Amino acid sequence: MSNFLTNSSSNPNPNKSIEVNQPPTDSISSLNFSPKSNLLVATSWDNQVRCWEVARDGTNVLCSAWKDDGTTVFSGGCDKQVKMWPLLSGGQPITVAMHDAPINQIAWIPEINLLATGSWDRTIKYWDTRQPNPAHTQQLPERCYAMTVKHPLMVVGTADRNLVVYNLQNPQLCKYLLALTIVTLQQVEFKRIVSPLKYQTRCLAAFPDQQGFLVGSIEGRVGVHHLDDSQQAKNFTFKCHREGNEIYSVNSLNFHPVHHTFATAGSDGAFNFWDKDSKQRLKAMLRCSQPVPCSAFNNDGSIYAYAVCYDWSKGAENHNPATAKTNIFLHLPQESEVKGKPRIGATGRR
């Protein structure tokens, strides 16, 4: 697989993407599209949650997990709370979850009607948003760094390179009544593995077919991991977001909702599109002048949103508020950029 990266640029928007108006005033920590529409939510270090309606003609109307009906946003952060924002009704946000340390992962799981939250307090908690206490608290081996859910698969990445896999359809795992009361919720690990990458886990993405997951690290490398023991020969890792001796973090992994290829975004300011089945890079985009800390596809894959801003990977001493502008851009992928290609060679070897 090619590791070539385009040259650095002082331009924050070398790919000529559509710029989102009125971006946050500080670094962006997450981006998420509504599962039902082109509503885009961003959370940022200025303690704000913002929402835009993205029209396909490129204009934006102002307004980080979404509820599956597209009406509600959940946001969490360093105040150790999760707030539920009823966007369409115009109601006030309410606190629906709490941890003992900052919350950095949120996932709404519609199949069991629960909110999952991951924290540096070494727990995953499950919440019925109608109840004040968690339905269940699952202890983790270390601090939660990343989480991905594609029901019934759930993977949690923690410090010390632990990857903990849960099967959300396991009868022993979740007994939940879709009423006002919770009978019991028991969580058991399906599998725990050590990350195939040698350095700290930065991001995760479950395969669309729930048969495995991607893991990205701070060392500019992605691992492709299948859960079935009979498929282990298909596992591999590859380098990305590097230039010469410079190595950058892989900050975000997103599967295309239609073609099931995926995008990586990194601290080098680049985002690239890949096909794991043919082990090829489909498109390398030009590097922006600042890191890309987070990204997201909309529900049909026609829009790829990405943030360009300082990501704090080099510490506060390298942050200059006077020059570190924050941007959100919208890239409209061409089919050639995101549609998978046949494996090169008759035998599939490159």
Rank of each mutant, 00 (worst) to 15 (best):
M1S: 10
L5R: 11
N7H: 08
S9R: 07
I18E: 09
Q22A: 15
D26G: 05
L31G: 05
F33E: 00
S34K: 05
T43Y: 00
S44N: 03
V49N: 01
R56E: 09
V61A: 03
C63R: 15
K67S: 10
D69Y: 05
P86Y: 07
T95S: 15
M98K: 15
D100K: 11
I103S: 08
I103F: 04
A107V: 05
L115P: 06
A116W: 00
A116P: 03
R122M: 12
Q131K: 13
T137G: 04
C144V: 10
T148Y: 00
L153V: 10
V164D: 10
C174A: 15
K175D: 14
A179W: 01
L180V: 14
F190K: 03
P196V: 13
A205E: 12
A206K: 00
F207N: 00
F207D: 02
Q211T: 15
V215C: 11
I218H: 06
E219V: 02
H226N: 04
F236E: 03
T237N: 07
H241I: 09
Y248R: 12
F262R: 03
A265H: 04
G266E: 02
D268F: 00
F271T: 02
W274R: 07
D275T: 10
S278L: 04
A284W: 00
P291N: 05
C294E: 04
S295I: 07
S295P: 08
S302G: 09
A307E: 06
K314L: 12
A324W: 03
A324T: 08
T326E: 10
N327H: 15
I328S: 07
S336F: 11
K339D: 09
I344M: 05
